[in-house]
Design a protein around this nucleic acid. Sequence first.
DNA 1: TCTCGATCGTGACAGATGTCACTCGCGTTC
DNA 2: GAACGCGAGTGACATCTGTCACGATCGAGA
Lengths: 200, 200
Amino acid sequence: MRILLAEDQTMFRTALGTLLDLEPDFEVVAQVGRGDAVVAAARESRPDVALLDIEMPGATGLEVTPLLLAEVPGVVVVVLTTFGRPGYLKRALEAGARGFLLKDVPVERLAEQLRAVVGGSIVVDPQLAASALATPPSPLTDREREVLVEGARGATVQEIAVRLHLSPATVRNYLSSAIGKTGASNRVSAAKVAEQQGWL
Amino acid sequence: MRILLAEDQTMFRTALGTLLDLEPDFEVVAQVGRGDAVVAAARESRPDVALLDIEMPGATGLEVTPLLLAEVPGVVVVVLTTFGRPGYLKRALEAGARGFLLKDVPVERLAEQLRAVVGGSIVVDPQLAASALATPPSPLTDREREVLVEGARGATVQEIAVRLHLSPATVRNYLSSAIGKTGASNRVSAAKVAEQQGWL
DNA sequence: TCTCGATCGTGACAGATGTCACTCGCGTTC
DNA sequence: GAACGCGAGTGACATCTGTCACGATCGAGA
């Protein structure tokens, strides 16, 4: 089984690569450390499975998934992430991922889970699947989300307005409504809440 | 060589454990996922080397290092981290660490670096060592740092004041001076700057 | 068709934030 | 002993933030 690994932390990526290569039926045919390098690498190496981290420079695994499926039909995408956020899981499955694995399980299970996915199963942490079904979708509109991420970086209303081509007053309105929807009392904690819910 | 692994991400920790155990001269005698579990595990397992992550729940690797050295004399501490921040390196060496390894190097080098450290060398990334020497120490006082981390979480001046048992006016003064020293224009970007410099 | 929600905007207001000047006590250092 | 830096505090001020009411447009649905 030909595997592509996409994970930005070099030591972790190479460790996974070495371990998977030790399995007799696995062959790691490509390793990349950036999201925007995945598609090109997959075109070259034609993997059966792509194991994608979510948080990567260049592009997230969630962004890459649909591009990869369009470009290399037949590849099985498995998303691997630190954060078991219901929003992430939903988006991953919507994007076409066939597995959603968490980095807080021992590696020993990784190989079997990969084999299950390639065998046709959809592999998802059961607890996570349950909470994803129970969790309401993001209440934030696109604009509210955009404004919130900028605000969380420390940008002032003015700076956000310039960056998003909006009036400062409008930015404040969006911020205010995002703060209200998250139940927070300022933009920073609103962003924390939204991030934990996987709304960003 | 007996090794203790402390790293909060289970998959990474177990992957490292498996790989290091494959080396004939290595034996992983303990694995923990929390900073505050390191000392007890070390007392039990008496490792020759402790490989400590910095960012861990319970306690950071930097906090644990001096405790571990006091409790288990003779153990060689190696700090392993994602972030090559000069401030981290300085603090690690001051705390008594004998190695400072980055997670953005391939695993292949890990084993040899561990052997070098146990052999008496102090192993530090050369580039990082250079920039640590060139980097001025943190200009922030303890109070400024404390106030800044709380502020970055989205706490209001009032909340920070209560949590640190200070007057609100004093909190604002500290925030203001921290903002000035980082060259930022508000607490959030000040915290970002300070974090990137390893001042927190 | 009419309504609803999203987008974008204005103006006004209270409260939070950031800046500044200035004070005091305490421990180091010169 | 004087000078200095740090912790801690006060009061005043301008600006930024968050809230609210309100208006306008536009597309999707009932």
